[in-house]
Simulated scan of single mutants.
Amino acid sequence: MEDPGSQIAYWDGVGATKTFTHPVNLRRLAGVGANARVLDYGCGYGRVMAELSDHGFSDVSGVDLSPTLVERGRELRPDLRFRVLESPPDLDCAPAAFDVVLLFAVLTCIPDSDAQRALVAELSRVLAPGGLLYVSDLVLQDDERNRARYAARARRFGTPYGIFATDDGAVCRHHDIAHLRALLADFDLVEEHEIEVATMNGHRSRAVQLLGRRR
């Protein structure tokens, strides 16, 4: 299994300078109370946390494996609560500790399927029954550039189609939508919407947002 923290050198280096852009659709959280316990897993520098806090959510916290990104977030928003993940994907908290967990552009950074399943299982553990998992991530792209790099990586390493290396050294994954649905098989799928986003390297890409309810 590929350790989901194995790219820490990237995220503490060039990755810590990136701008993240997946949009928060607050309508999807319209039924969530302002006092709900919200966790942003893979929070980076706290962009999503800040938006939620500014919108009135009073109990928002974030975790990330990169100390450099966390420090960037603390400098930008000292009013928010950040923690560094010591042993991802494990969270140092009790079961059912949160009402909402956000997972924005995190699965793309964890190319290994087993590691992705372990992460979703941990998030299910810390979500209260009826709690929401809000996922935003990238799906397979159909342009020639991406198809070529998916195929090259699959031929060389035998990895699932959709995994590739960025020009600046990260190993990422774009997902078959069926794979993302399977990851959330233990949740009731409430919503699914395709969107377009700018990637951290400035490319326009297709993405999907899924909202799952913990059973």
Rank of each mutant, 00 (worst) to 15 (best):
H55M: 05
A50C: 08
N35Y: 03
L29M: 11
H174F: 14
D12E: 10
A128F: 05
G15S: 12
L119P: 00
G62F: 08
D137E: 10
R181K: 11
R149M: 11
V135Y: 05
R27T: 12
R215P: 15
T19V: 15
L138A: 01
E194V: 06
Y134A: 01
G130R: 12
G5C: 05
Q7P: 12
R47K: 14
V48R: 10
H55K: 13
F82K: 09
R153A: 10
E75A: 14
Y134H: 13
V24G: 08
H175A: 00
A9K: 02
N25F: 15
V139Y: 01
P4C: 05
E75V: 14
V135E: 11
H203G: 02
Y10W: 07
V38M: 11
G202C: 14
S58L: 12
Q141I: 09
H179S: 02
T17H: 07
L65I: 10
G202D: 13
Q141T: 07
G169E: 01
Q116R: 15
R155H: 07
A170K: 08
R155N: 07
L138T: 09
P129N: 13
I163F: 00
C93M: 11
G202I: 15
L85P: 00
L39T: 04
R213L: 08
D137N: 10
V197Y: 11
S6C: 05
L107M: 14
S61W: 06
R74A: 06
A9G: 04
L132W: 10
G169F: 00
N35H: 09
Q141W: 15
F57K: 02
